[in-house]
């Protein structure tokens, strides 16, 4: 159940967008498709929705073979990055569209639209045109519109990509809470790892048309299957012959089972964080190592730029990959 994707391939001319994709997306969960722009994740989402056709392979949605079905018969809710608001219709009309197409009785449409507008906190804007709404409000309207048809799956294509940072963070939390209320199988595409880690139940990392790894946010962050996943999910630095997260490095002022030693050559403070660059003495690994620690830790160690320090992986640092 959920969404079953088997052997999907897609080329645009000689550009390979998707290659042999096999993926099961469980029912009722919130799954993120994460990867760099142009990696194929949006294409996969559009193939699930029927907005794009795959060259080969099958798509099953909640037990129903949807491979040959056009978009309008798949009963999926789709939310676009740039809202795709129907500009000539009021908010209310936008949300009612799918129900009117399904020829639902007027009273029922009215009732359902009111419910949905309440759900997305747009009750007082029902008679406005999309151009009179902010970006965040438009996207909430688009979400209500997609939910109106009681879709078997909800698909969101970079839904917060066009919004500014603050609104994006609010909407992200709000989407999580909404999903906890509505429980519809949801797939959303993003290139923002923080967004994916924060919101989703499970993550699918896609790069260059292939699936790199599937798992829970914890799995992926702590046990990345590849260098790509490791570096895509957060900052990475090289300590000796290992790739490691900069905040998983222990820094001391005396030699103690250290992997590397060197001088602090750069010191940047961002809020409560101190970001250091340590240039190792090691001739084999001369590239600067990034280290992140809190201001409290730095003060306790009495660190200054130019100091000699020793570095080693922190105990329990899991997200490290030997090269």
């Amino acid at each position: 159940m959920g969404i079953e994707i088997r052997g999907v391939n897609k080329n645009f001319g000689d550009f390979v967008a998707l290659q042999d994709i096999d993926l099961s997306i469980p029912s009722g969960q919130l799954t993120a498709l994460l990867g760099p722009s142009g990696g194929g994740k949006s294409t996969l989402l559009r193939i699930i929705a029927g907005l794009e056709s795959s060259d080969s392979g099958t798509i099953e949605i909640e037990g129903l073979d949807a491979t040959g079905l056009p978009a309008q018969k798949r009963n999926v809710g789709f939310v676009f990055q740039h809202y795709a608001a129907f500009k000539h219709m009021t908010v209310e009309k936008n949300v009612a569209f799918g129900l009117e197409i399904r020829k639902k009785p007027k009273a029922e449409v009215k009732k359902r639209v009111a419910e949905l507008l309440k759900l997305v906190h747009l009750e007082q804007f029902s008679h406005r045109l999309p151009s009179q709404l902010s970006g965040g409000q438009r996207q909430r309207m688009a979400l209500a519109r997609a939910l109106a048809i009681e879709p078997s799956v909800l698909l969101l294509d970079e839904p917060f990509g066009a919004l500014d940072a603050k609104v994006r963070k609010e909407l992200r939390e709000w989407l999580r809470r909404l999903h906890d209320e509505v429980h519809v199988t949801t797939v959303f595409v993003t290139h923002d790892q923080e967004e994916a880690l924060e919101v989703s139940d499970s993550l699918v990392v896609i790069n260059e048309g292939r699936i790199e790894q599937i798992g829970t946010p914890d799995d992926l962050y702590d046990r990345p299957a590849s260098e790509f996943v490791l570096s895509f999910l957060g900052p990475v630095t090289r300590l000796g012959d290992k790739l490691i997260r900069p905040h998983d490095i222990d820094i001391t002022r005396y030699e103690h089972a250290a992997t590397a030693s060197g001088r602090i050559t750069r010191w940047t403070r961002v809020g409560f964080e101190i970001r250091l660059e340590v240039t190792p003495d090691d001739v084999l690994h001369p590239d600067p190592v990034q280290v992140i620690l809190t201001r409290t830790e730095a003060t306790a160690l009495q660190l200054h730029e130019g100091d000699m320090v020793w570095l080693r992986p922190r105990a329990g640092a899991e997200a490290a990959l030997a090269r």
Partner: peptide, 17 residues
């Protein structure tokens, strides 16, 4: 001639509409 990883990917998707 957008390369696959170029930031113009979203625009490219519009172009092949």
């Amino acid at each position: 001639v957008d390369t696959p990883l170029a930031p113009g990917a979203a625009r490219k998707r519009r172009a092949r509409s």
